[in-house]
Design a protein around this nucleic acid. Structure first.
Lengths: 203, 203
DNA sequence: TTTCAAATTAACCAACTAGTCAACTAATCC
DNA sequence: GGATTAGTTGACTAGTTGGTTAATTTGAAA
């Protein structure tokens, strides 16, 4: 019944890309439509507003990212290996984005969150939800690592928050500096925070 | 010669406040003028563009912040006390802003940097400069603390970057969550990163 | 008290903003 | 091969954007 179209998907991807590279504020509906090769009327056929598209785009992007998190933090890996895989992926992703856009983009949820989260309750709620989910992956891996005695982290959630803030902060700095090499210290920073290279773990 | 005015200062303060609370993109020249009680013509008498005002406002705000950094990191304090003073000030400042604006605002340089830094070379250059200066305060205190044997940080600049990314990341999360209590862990996180509570320092 | 530069003002502009709508087109199902 | 329904189109608002201008008011210095 009726014809089919992939305009919806094109809009989602264009939106995510434009928010990620630039910002929500500077991304206009016209820009999105141009990039997605969709006329404005079609835009409003699929989404009721620019905000609604942004939310859907974040949801879409998160589902993609969640897959790699599920892979990285698979219980089939030893816990420390999970964290190493994750932190390397973080850097690799930025390298890919740098190739594609000529810029270091950082974390889109973080960027969008600091920009519009505080001013829009629905946005804030969704972004908080994603970040909270994200945090749980780290927490679980750190807890497992502690149980194995590989890492000293009696309060896994506390360590996870430190590691998470650190990684997001460094990603943001790499974006501000537009310099990939800042991310070279990502892994060693994690090792330092988790004290992975300490000769012995002290109580 | 000619009359005097404090409109310039009012514009600087209005701009900083609006950027800090919201974002550069959502802050219009009209809003700035309204808040500063200045007509648009006067705006362009003092500043050649919205960008120029934003730059001047950041410069203005940084000069204020630098004073508190100079106080916090005064050589008259023991190095660890400097860091403690700094991290407590960070939280206190957010508490003040929360009282004034009903929101957790985070670091304005960081917020502005992630939003427009990547798209505007001059912005990027200035913000990078401020962040680099900021980092030097931490680095110097950590180096002094290491020299005193209070902290194990053979590479002070590496530790400083970790601590800085962590603090900026946590501040950003507090903004996204709009929750002051997130900053309760700021000091303990710093102590963990610097290993201030370790019973002994291992080589 | 005159002078003259600095500051103020309101009206103005072209471009852009998010969003609307009625007419139109093309698949899909019967 | 029609009817139905989903998708497309371009022209259209009404409000906002950053920025301009020329006339006017002011106050500090001579």
């Amino acid at each position: 019944m009726g014809r089919t179209s992939d305009a919806r998907e094109r809009l989602l991807e264009a939106m995510l890309e434009l928010i990620w590279v630039g910002s929500f504020g500077t991304t206009s509906v016209d820009h999105i439509c141009e990039r997605a090769e969709v006329k404005k009327g079609s835009f409003y056929h699929f989404f009721e507003s620019k905000h609604a598209l942004a939310m859907a785009a974040i949801e879409h992007g998160w589902e993609e990212f969640r897959k790699t998190l599920d892979d990285a933090f698979s219980a089939s890996r030893p816990p420390v290996e999970r964290l190493e895989f994750w932190i390397r992926h973080l850097r690799d992703e930025q390298v890919q984005m740098h190739i594609r856009h000529g810029r270091v983009l950082g974390c889109p949820i973080h960027t969008l969150g600091t920009e519009v989260g505080p001013m829009d309750d629905l946005f804030q709620k969704v972004l908080k939800g994603k970040l909270a989910q994200y945090l749980r992956y780290l927490e679980s891996a750190i807890r497992d690592a502690h149980a194995e005695g590989v890492v000293h982290a009696p309060e896994a959630s506390v360590k996870a928050k430190i590691l998470f803030s650190y990684s997001e902060g460094l990603l943001a700095h790499a974006r501000i500096w537009n310099d990939l090499s800042i991310l070279d210290s990502l892994e060693s920073g994690m090792r330092d925070i988790l004290r992975l290279d300490d000769s012995l773990v002290v109580a």
